[in-house]
Simulated scan of single mutants.
Amino acid sequence: MRLTVRTNLAMRALMFCAINADRTVRKAEIAEACNSSENHLGVVINMLGQTGFIETTRGRNGGVRLKVAPEALSVGQVFRVFEANVPFAECFAGSENHCPLTASCRLRGHLSVALEAFYSALDGVTLADLVRDNSGLRTLLELETA
């Protein structure tokens, strides 16, 4: 199993916002710290904003900040938003499924159970769990105060 780049960037951006919770951060700051292009990050930020995880402000003093408390945002919630439309295997791909075994194969049912267990495990992990008392992450992501 491999996460999409968008899911990975979403978690990086959320951790960046959580570490810098006392301020509005700019997309360029997140992109630099998270080793991402601003364009790719822009798509992720847009999706995070649409889900209500962050709030965005346009303009000269604009940027992004968490809209949800880190304690209330589970990693499972984020992963479901970004991974839900990515089929785990061909048999999950709807009209794109061309597997000749689909009608008789029992693997899909077991994969569904395993995927739900994966998401359920991540439901128990919050954004706060990832950043709380994490001095290494703080060193990497915290912006200097002006």
Rank of each mutant, 00 (worst) to 15 (best):
G52K: 07
D123L: 08
V75S: 14
G63H: 10
E116F: 00
N46G: 11
L122A: 14
N39H: 08
V43A: 07
G59A: 04
V131C: 09
F82N: 09
V64K: 04
A121V: 14
A18F: 11
R132T: 11
N61D: 15
G124M: 11
S112G: 02
T24Q: 04
T102I: 01
L14H: 05
M1V: 00
G63I: 07
G109K: 01
F79W: 07
G109D: 01
I54N: 09
I45N: 14
A33T: 10
C99G: 02
V86A: 02
H98F: 12
L141K: 06
R23S: 15
E32M: 05
N134H: 08
E55K: 15
L130V: 11
Q50T: 07
C105E: 00
C17G: 08
S104G: 04
E55D: 14
D123P: 13
S74K: 06
T56P: 02
L41I: 06
I45E: 06
E71P: 02
L41E: 11
L9H: 10
A89L: 02
A10L: 11
V125K: 07
T102S: 04
L143W: 03
S135A: 11
A21I: 14
A128K: 09
I19Y: 07
A69T: 06
V44W: 07
A114Y: 00
T139D: 14
D129Y: 03
D22T: 04
L122H: 14
L48V: 06
L14R: 06
V64T: 11
D123I: 15
L130C: 12
R60Q: 03
P70M: 09
I45R: 08
E71I: 03
I30E: 10
E71S: 15
L140W: 03
L41P: 02
A72F: 13
V81G: 03
N46I: 04
R6S: 13
R106L: 15
A121P: 04
R65D: 14
A121L: 10
E71A: 15
V5N: 13
E71K: 14
Q50F: 10
Q50N: 12
L143N: 06
L73W: 07
A93G: 00
A28E: 13
L48P: 13
N46M: 12
F88D: 00
V86M: 01
L127C: 04
L48G: 13
I19K: 05
A128C: 06
M1Q: 01
N46D: 14
R2F: 05
N39L: 13
G109S: 04
R12G: 05
